[in-house]
Each structure stands twice: as C-alpha cells, then as structure tokens.
C-alpha cells in the first residue's frame, strides 16, 4: 500500500469529475487529495488524484478510468521522477507585540508569503511538497491556527518527458 499520484486528462465537460471520483468510491478507495484545473490543451482539464492502495488495485482503477468516454489519458506519476506541489493558506493568531515576529520569522524560513495582516491574525501562503506544508502547519499550531486550507497535490514529470495527450 503506497500513495499513487494519478494524472488524468479529461474533456472539460459537466459531470466529468463525478464520473472520475465515482469510480474510486465504487471500489472502496479514499481519495487523499484532488486537484482539478484547465491545462495546456484547450477544452481539456487535468485532474491530479492521490490515492493509497496496492499496485494491482490502483492499476485496475486506472484501466477503468480509461474506459470513461470523457477520459483521454491516465498516468501514474509515482512511477517516474516528478515535481509535486501543494499550496496552503494558513490563518494564524498573531496579536501585535506577542508572537507576530516569531511567526514572520518562521514564514521566512519556509519561504511562505504573508498575504494578509489583520489586527489579531496574519495569513500565510506556502507552496511545497506535502511534508513541507505539514511541517509548517505543525510549527504554527502553537500560536493557534484559526483556519487552514490546502489545495490538492499537483504533479508534473521532470525533464522533457510529458504526459501525452492521447490514449
């Protein structure tokens, strides 16, 4: 059982996301993370899905995904060298004159941006792999995380290799 990052190229049509996610729930998979957006091809979207499962089950789900008419291409990025990123927005308690300076210092170590400063809190924006964001979150907990929102993971193959556009 290991995490698989699947990249699914789909027609950008209503209902396509529920067709794709439905296949996972039908087979008892829990989707760890999900990110959807438009991509380099007009009219298409790329869905990045992280699931944990044994190789054979994940392969079966991939072949089932292939069968969906709106799915153009399915690849398992975990098989290759790749870059993976997530983005998080974290609202942290930061009363002026107390921990605010420390928080700013931590942000700078993690190369997080301060995107909003309020009277009692600040908002950090951080990008990185899952572990980095987990680490930052853990550090900020001591100050009181008021709200945290994370995107799903997105991934891309390293080098000139790319996920081709046809089945």
């Amino acid at each position: 059982m290991k995490p698989h990052t699947l990249s699914v190229l789909v027609e950008n049509r209503p209902g396509v996301l529920s067709r794709v996610t439905g296949l996972f729930s039908r087979r008892g998979f829990n989707i760890e993370s999900l990110a959807v957006g438009t991509c380099e091809e007009p009219g298409m979207s790329r869905i990045t899905i992280v699931v944990i499962g044994d190789d054979a089950k994940v392969e079966q789900v991939m072949t089932q995904l292939h069968k969906l008419i709106d799915v153009i291409k399915v690849s398992d990025l975990s098989e290759n060298e790749r870059v993976e990123r997530e983005l998080a927005l974290i609202k942290v308690n930061a009363e002026p004159g107390t921990s605010r300076a420390e928080i700013l210092q931590i942000a700078s170590i993690f190369r997080a941006l301060i995107v909003d400063v309020g009277s009692k809190s600040v908002i950090l924006e951080v990008t990185g792999d899952t572990e980095k964001i987990d680490a930052l979150e853990k550090l900020l907990r001591q100050y009181g995380v008021k709200e945290l929102v994370r995107t799903g993971k997105i991934g891309i193959l390293r080098g000139s290799k790319s996920v081709p556009g046809s089945k």
Binding site: G15, S18, G22, R26, K67, I69
Partner: peptide, 11 residues
C-alpha cells in the same frame, strides 16, 4: 437520472 445511472451506463 444521469447521476443515478453513471455507474451503470457506458456513457
């Protein structure tokens, strides 16, 4: 009905 029949239709 499109939602209901998603898992039982080819498309």
């Amino acid at each position: 009905i499109t939602g209901i029949t998603m898992p039982i239709t080819k498309h």
